[in-house]
Amino acid sequence: MVASARILRHTEIARGIFDLRFFSPDAARTATPGQFVHIRVSDSFDFVLRRPLSVCRVDPSEGSVTVVYRVQGAGTRRLATMAAGAQLDVLGPLGQGFPLHAGDVRAVLVGGGVGVPPLVELAARLAAQGTAVTSVVGFQTRAQAILQDELALYGDVRTTTDDGSLGLRGLVTGVLTQGFVDGANRYYACGPTPMLQAVQRTMAGLQVPGYLSLEERMGCGFGICVGCVHPIERDGRVQNLKTCKDGPVFPAGEVLFT
């Protein structure tokens, strides 16, 4: 659950976006897609909060876990300076990941920006159980596009960019039409809140059930600070559930946006 993990590889795969692979056999064996690891970026208390990074790939045979993150502030900037061979303080895997439904014929995966990484391991597991996977991934611009090749290993990938520099110009929801989702049993989405909200609305209209992986500013990562809550309608009442412990993945039909 808590480990000092050696960094195996740490590379910049797009402008300001890093692929970080570390050695953690326990996490590699137990992590499920949609779960996250909580990484300490310094061994001093200059940064008191860990950084939650969702699991992009696991390789149990190598004992490795890969996360992909964007440098957003001082903490991730510090993390980006850590080289292969250095030790990382890793807590996790944490949270509730994407539930897999055996027997699903087809699933649609929707990702935006650095919400795309957890879809890679998800696509792999879905494909392994015989579910056909189609992915729709959106980015601001071509320079920030990541992981389409990895997703393409498991099925068709549609790309959108805000500026039209790659794939279709526009939002991921532009792709999600009746014809496109035909035969899909389920969808899985991870990305910024406005995207999740739009996807939830669109897919509800198309009557496809699914899951949303929510993004809330996190503190402890395991349920003691109650910082990262999101309103969830469950058991007939609205509850502020913890994204870190009860999520980050919730059934789309339960998620309320204000």
């Binding site: 008191v48 909060l49 809330e216 503190g219 109650v226 910082g227 990262c228 809550v229 502020n240």
Partner: peptide
């Protein structure tokens, strides 16, 4: 129910919370 989010923010060697 507590406050709306974001409820936490990191600061130099500390953090702000408004749970």
């Amino acid at each position: 129910m507590g406050n709306p989010t974001p409820r936490v923010a990191e600061t130099p060697a500390g953090m702000l919370n408004a749970i």
